[in-house]
Design a protein around this nucleic acid. Sequence first.
DNA 1: AAAATAATGTTATATTATAACATAACAAAC
DNA 2: GTTTGTTATGTTATAATATAACATTATTTT
Lengths: 162, 162
Amino acid sequence: MTEQCSHSNIASCTLPSSEQVARLIDQATELCDKRNLRFTRLRRQVLELVCKADQPVGAYHLLDELRESGRSAAPPTVYRALDFLLEQGLVHRLATNNTYLACAHPQQPHAAIFLVCSQCGHTQEVHTGGVIDQLRRQAEQFDFAIEHASVELTGLCSRCRQ
Amino acid sequence: MTEQCSHSNIASCTLPSSEQVARLIDQATELCDKRNLRFTRLRRQVLELVCKADQPVGAYHLLDELRESGRSAAPPTVYRALDFLLEQGLVHRLATNNTYLACAHPQQPHAAIFLVCSQCGHTQEVHTGGVIDQLRRQAEQFDFAIEHASVELTGLCSRCRQ
DNA sequence: AAAATAATGTTATATTATAACATAACAAAC
DNA sequence: GTTTGTTATGTTATAATATAACATTATTTT
Ligand SMILES: [Zn+2]
Ligand SMILES: [Zn+2]
Ligand SMILES: [Zn+2]
Ligand SMILES: [Zn+2]
């Protein structure tokens, strides 16, 4: 997991510290508890793997990691866990490259946009009310009610531009 | 193809008229001519199929239609044609549902956003400089240079809301 | 403890897309 | 107009992503 918080952009290319991962797992535990949902060992393990990755990861990469960890796993194993995490807003899915990444702010529901580096894969989640509001206004002009906004910007990150 | 022009929103749910399809084919012919590219029979046929569809279509749907038309075709047949059309800006690809639709304004390069109805599949291409400009500004704050913006809004279209 | 529910295991298969190499069509050069 | 190089297409196989269907296990409720 990269530091995806738009408020601490400077550290955005550092590797995920174990503290950051632990914090997200704690938040997830609390959140599932609050919602009376089972944060099972499998779901926790998949979230950990997604958090630890320094880039969005594919489902089959997670599957390999689950297997390496000794657990018996097949595609449905990982897809079901990912579906749960997606429903709970703990991870996001990037449609442009079929990958999954941990949400940086799972506590409150939010719309986000993603900056995906086409060179190094580094991906940053940005919470920006402004863009989403403007999209909503645009959609309203067409009498269109947005249920989900997928905004994925592909390009070069600051590091790769230098 | 649906009428995707943001200037004639009212007709957005009408079926594509053969004139509209013919117009887009003409534009494509002219455009390829200008660029010294070969608008072959296959490429024309695939573009026609995409244009005639009243919704974005999947690659394998196009493949079936090619075969029904009597042509020998395999997956690479359609994907290569689609790649060409994508490169030339004649069609767009929707990442959220792996479908392809004809560009409403292939003449000038542009960034577009898509309103995808989750109920009827109707999809509208909207050209809106404002949103893209704001996205670009947001990205600049992170020293990020956008190469491609994928903005796909899923929700209910006006017809399905009633 | 029994019954109901939810989660996971397991096998098979669907869907989307590309690799690799052969053939054919076309364009440029001779 | 034939050779030569280039581009496009045909063809077979396979990769990558995702889901269906049903059996088993774990958890919760009664
Ligand atoms: Zn998030
Ligand atoms: Zn980068
Ligand atoms: Zn367009
Ligand atoms: Zn609709």
